[in-house]
Each structure stands twice: as structure tokens, then as C-alpha cells.
């Protein structure tokens, strides 16, 4: 196999897939950093975001790319509402209760999508897009957009967390909620902010998954496990860990086909996860222990 087909068919799909996982994993990691529980409705929230974008394209007649920011915003606000409705009153209880509640929310979200948009597979645009050829590297325009937007979102998030007052408050609360509270950080506002960011990134990951493949009600649920694997692999609670973890999981899945049969693709990501947990239980970037 030559270099070009290695990049075209193995590396590039892995990177695209990895950045989709990374966007989801950042959300999972943020929720864990601030609120200390695993949020299992994350996959279905991504499905919801993807279908909200579909609604903007069909109802308002927008192009998918124009629908993306609207869907990100809408899903962010929706995530805050979910938190107020289902998670807020569980805050003082053991975290496992909220984790289990998030499973229930996942089922509700999925059923909601199925009731509103139906159970059939659909897509943002009809037809196919053949990849463009850049000196032998074949890449589709929406793959480039996926990568660019993912990078932009990550950079924006990094700047927000390091430069902005509220971003610093989020980090403070992640380090020590009580201390942050005594220093005058409004925990309620930080939690709402976390949900806006996590929900928005979630919608972006769902949107790009739908753009690169198809939209279906189980799409988010199907990427939940690799997304979680990515978050844990990088170190839970560490943004940079989630990004690296996402890329590793995505690329490992695609490259594994070179050595093991395709039906065991999923296994490769978990194999890596297992090794990391064995030899470095806190994840690559020394995150919080689950």
C-alpha cells in the first residue's frame, strides 16, 4: 500500500472521526470536572443537536453550515434546561444517582427524536460529494470543515478558560468547589455555563457525525462508548486529554483494520483504553480518578 492510500483511507477518516469523538469527549470531561459525574445522555444529546440542525435546514431552508451555530446555541440552552429539570435537585445526593438519571434522560431524548423526526435514516443533503484531490490527498470539503471548526472550537474554549473571568471561575470550581464558592464564584452560574459549552460542543459533534455519515436516532448512542473511552484515555477532567484521547481512539479504530479483521474495529479503542488504565490509571494527562 502506498503513502497516499494510507493517508486517504486510514489516517484521514481516523482524524475526522477522532475530532468528532474529541468534541463529545470535551463535553463529558467538562461535566465531570465541574459536577463530578459521568453524563451518559451525552450521545443522545449529540443526536438531538444533529436533528435540531436538520430542523433549521428544512424549516428555515438554511444551508447545513449556517444551521450549525444555531443548533450549537439551541442545544446549549437545551442542556441548561435539562440540567434544571432533571439534575439540579439531585446535586446534593451521591453522584451515582445523577449518573443513572442521565441514562433516563438519554432514553427520553432518543424517544423524543424518534417521535418528532421519525426512525428512518436521513441526511442533511441528498446525493454524494466526491472528494477533491490535493496532490494525491483525497479529502471532502465537509471533512476539511469538520477539522477546521473542531480546531476553532477548541482554541476558543482554551482562550475562554484561560483569559475570561468566567472561564477562570470554571477552572476554580473544577479544582475545588467549596473554595471557589467562598471566593465568590457563583456555582449556579458556572454550572449553567458548563452546560451551555458542553451542550454546544455536543451538538457540534452530532452535526459533524451526521454531515460525514447519516442522521439516525441511534447515532449518538453509538458513539457514546468511544467518546467516553476518549475522555478517560486522556484523563477525565482534562480538556487537552479529551482532544488527544479522541484523536487516538478515532485513528486507532481506522488503523486497526490493517492488522485485525474489520468487525473487531471497536475493540482496538478499548484495547488502548485498557492498557492506559492498567499502566497509567489517571489517563494520559493525569486527570481526576473516576
Amino acid at each position: 500500500m502506498d503513502m497516499h492510500s494510507f493517508i486517504n483511507f486510514f489516517l484521514l477518516p481516523g482524524i475526522v472521526q477522532g475530532s468528532i469523538y474529541a468534541l463529545g469527549a470535551i463535553g463529558i470531561t467538562l461535566v465531570f470536572a465541574i459536577m463530578r459525574y459521568g453524563h451518559f445522555a451525552h450521545g443522545d444529546l449529540a443526536t438531538f443537536g444533529a436533528f435540531i440542525a436538520l430542523a433549521f435546514t428544512t424549516v428555515l431552508g438554511l444551508s447545513p453550515y449556517a444551521a450549525l451555530p444555531l443548533a450549537v446555541l439551541a442545544t446549549g440552552v437545551f442542556a441548561v434546561a435539562l440540567d434544571r429539570l432533571f439534575y439540579a435537585h439531585l446535586r446534593a445526593m451521591p453522584k451515582i444517582i445523577t449518573t443513572i438519571a442521565s441514562f433516563g434522560v438519554a432514553l427520553m431524548l432518543r424517544s423524543f427524536v424518534q417521535v418528532v423526526w421519525g426512525v428512518n435514516t436521513t441526511s442533511y443533503t441528498r446525493g454524494i460529494t466526491r472528494p477533491e484531490n490535493w496532490f494525491g490527498i483525497r479529502v471532502k470539503s465537509h471533512e476539511i470543515v469538520t477539522l477546521l471548526v473542531a480546531i476553532a472550537l477548541v482554541v476558543a474554549l482554551h482562550l475562554f478558560l484561560t483569559r475570561n473571568k468566567w472561564g477562570k471561575a470554571m477552572r476554580a470550581m473544577s479544582d475545588n468547589p467549596e473554595l471557589a464558592l467562598f471566593s465568590g464564584v457563583d456555582n449556579g452560574k458556572v454550572i449553567a455555563l458548563t452546560w451551555i459549552i458542553a451542550g454546544g460542543l455536543c451538538a457540534a459533534s452530532g452535526f459533524f457525525l451526521g454531515l460525514n455519515t447519516e442522521l439516525k436516532s441511534l447515532m449518538g448512542w453509538n458513539i457514546l462508548l468511544p467518546t467516553f473511552a476518549a475522555a478517560i484515555l486522556g484523563g477525565v477532567g482534562r480538556i487537552e486529554g479529551a482532544i488527544v484521547g479522541g484523536l487516538i481512539v478515532g485513528i486507532a479504530e481506522e488503523l486497526s483494520v490493517l492488522v485485525i479483521p474489520g468487525e473487531y474495529k471497536v475493540m482496538s479503542a478499548f484495547g488502548i483504553l485498557l492498557l492506559v488504565l492498567l499502566f497509567r490509571p489517571t489517563g494520559l494527562f493525569r486527570g481526576k480518578v473516576l
Binding site: 486517504n8 483511507f9 481516523g14 472521526q17 468528532i20 458513539i223
Partner: peptide, 20 residues
């Protein structure tokens, strides 16, 4: 002759192998 797992989002690696 190869199986593929359901519900993955890319099969280009699988297809490249088959096309060889």
C-alpha cells in the same frame, strides 16, 4: 471477503482493504 461492524461512521479503511 470481510465482515464489518454495524453503526460505525466510516468504512473507508475496510473498503480500501477489500478493493485491493
Amino acid at each position: 471477503y470481510e465482515a464489518h461492524e454495524e453503526n460505525k461512521s466510516s468504512y473507508r479503511a475496510d473498503l480500501a482493504g477489500l478493493a485491493q
